[in-house]
Simulated scan of single mutants.
Amino acid sequence: MSSILISRAHGLEAIELTAPDGARATLLLHGAHLVSWVPAGGEEQLYLSPTSPFATGQAIRGGVPVIFPQFNTRGPLQKHGFARNKPWQLVSAESGKDDALAVLRLTDDGASRMVWPHAFEAEISVRITGRTLEMELACENRGDTPFSFAAALHTYLRLKSSLSASLQGLSGLAYWDSVENRAHTQHEDLLRLDGSELDRIYMSVKDELMLRDTDRRLRVSQQGFSDVVVWNPGEEKGAAFSDMPADGYRQMLCVEAAQVLHPVELAPGESWAAMQVLELQ
């Protein structure tokens, strides 16, 4: 194993992971935000808005934002919580004989305790090898009182063509439609984009999903997360975003491993961990 030094990307401190087989990834210390993943022999798999700001304390549009300890506006905190806007500490970054791995950590501080009065330690581990990306999010209750939280890996997948893209493996799943604000059940196996806003929380997802996009096949699976959020802002809402081009919605689909509808509850000293795995076929 050889250590990897901190470099810079988009003007911010970053870890540049490179596996011996050529797989690459870029992980910012700001928000523990993964902004690039290029599998061995492949192309960029993540969407990153070219108009997103890269500034301390600001959220980044694209890549994989870490959502913690609140999802969206489901609670009293800022949208999607504070973890994606805070600096994380580097625990380790190494390149091995067949992979590369980085671990970042976030702990409570005075600012976080003002809005969320709990002692915690969160870690994210990012591992690349071949055509596979593994992201594990973990949290430990370091205090003396229980707490609950929501979490998600808000993965923006790059699309070559939203008109031909589909997500397979959702048939039979119940979901909460955040646009219509009501519950549904998915009857079709394929979910296609039509330019309208899509915002769904699929429940009790146990099987892997497959993103099909022209000739590309990207397998999406998870362990420990019970929900999958599928989101695309659509034409109207996408055009209103200041941090994304008007046609940006055509180039991305969020498929997020999440724990939203049943938040995690941790007693003092308890830990939780969950993972999302992306594999280019």
Rank of each mutant, 00 (worst) to 15 (best):
M252P: 06
L266E: 02
S148I: 05
A14I: 10
Q281F: 07
L198M: 11
H10Y: 15
G22A: 08
V229F: 01
T132L: 11
E123T: 15
V179R: 10
A102K: 11
L253S: 04
R158P: 01
E208L: 00
I6H: 04
E140W: 10
P245A: 08
Q259V: 01
V255W: 05
R212D: 01
R24I: 02
L48Y: 09
A152G: 07
A111P: 02
D247K: 13
E270R: 11
I4V: 15
D199W: 06
Q251S: 15
I124M: 12
L133G: 03
P65Y: 07
P76M: 08
A14W: 09
A240S: 15
A152F: 03
I124G: 01
P233V: 06
R84T: 02
Q70R: 06
S95A: 14
E121K: 05
H10G: 01
T129M: 12
S95Q: 15
R105K: 13
G238Y: 09
I128T: 07
L280F: 08
L137R: 05
R192W: 01
L167T: 02
V205H: 01
F225G: 00
K237P: 00
L133V: 11
V264M: 05
L48I: 13
G143K: 14
A246M: 13
E197V: 04
G248N: 13
V38K: 10
P263R: 09
C139Y: 08
D213N: 12
R217A: 07
F241S: 10
L90D: 01
E235P: 03
F54H: 14
Q186F: 01
L253I: 15
L106W: 11
I6A: 01
E43G: 00
G11W: 14
T107F: 05
E208D: 08
M114L: 11
P268H: 08
H184Q: 12
L266S: 02
W116T: 05
D189F: 10
L77R: 06
L90G: 02
I60Y: 09
T132F: 04
Q45D: 03
A151N: 05
H80R: 04
L218F: 04
Q58S: 11
E134N: 12
G248S: 11
Q186D: 00
S112H: 05
G269V: 12
A122P: 06
E236Q: 13
V228G: 00
L48P: 06
L173D: 01
M135N: 01
D243T: 06
Q281H: 11
T51W: 15
